[in-house]
Design a protein around this nucleic acid. Sequence first.
DNA 1: GCGAATTGGTTCATAAATAGCCCATATGTC
DNA 2: GACATATGGGCTATTTATGAACCAATTCGC
Lengths: 111, 111
Amino acid sequence: MAKPETRAYSSYSHDALKLLAQMIRRARIERKLTTQELADRAGISRGLVQRIERGDPGSAIGAVFEAAAIIGVRLFDADQPTMAAHLSANNAMLALLPKSVRPSGKVKDDF
Amino acid sequence: MAKPETRAYSSYSHDALKLLAQMIRRARIERKLTTQELADRAGISRGLVQRIERGDPGSAIGAVFEAAAIIGVRLFDADQPTMAAHLSANNAMLALLPKSVRPSGKVKDDF
DNA sequence: GCGAATTGGTTCATAAATAGCCCATATGTC
DNA sequence: GACATATGGGCTATTTATGAACCAATTCGC
């Protein structure tokens, strides 16, 4: 994942990843935690913390989210009850949606 | 990363991951995209799309964010200019913060 | 300024994720 | 109902991330 042109990322996802990385780094420093301490609390290595704070797209999302949660970075600008509500809402919505998608003749999507 | 007890995830990061996965799945279905089509657009395999929509913590965060961006799922409830602003703000903030964290005697953080 | 410690950047061995198949089932369309 | 296809799951080979140890350099506390 070191090669720049191996995989193309949209600018949005790239910026989002970079932003999350910076938020994590900033929150860690503000909390006066060393990279090693954050690594220990997250159950990962210090090197991975550095890659996460650099915005490495190849980092496991579980490790990133865990590190973010530990230092108090909110992923969805929402607290836990709010997220739980969204989870339920999405579950209900998914139950109503068709179980499989069929391209009915012409392409309907666009953007 | 498949074993359930191998790594402990906080409930917040777990819920956040699950929520993002559901949002992606829901958005894909609403856009009438098959898992294969989303995989092609994101430059990943169909199997990875399935793991992403299941909330697999081991998925590469770049792949997850890219898939999310393609189907229009906003990671931070913000559009690109807003994210760019946050990026700049965080950059400025990071410049002001100390470059390295030193545990001055006792642990200052708490939660 | 000195010293201690954090950080960043390597390298390497190992473990894990990923891709690409396969199959069986469920689902939607006609 | 029959057909076509999307989905879910398993499997293996390959690519990759991860962890760990090292280094040099920066940075902060004193």
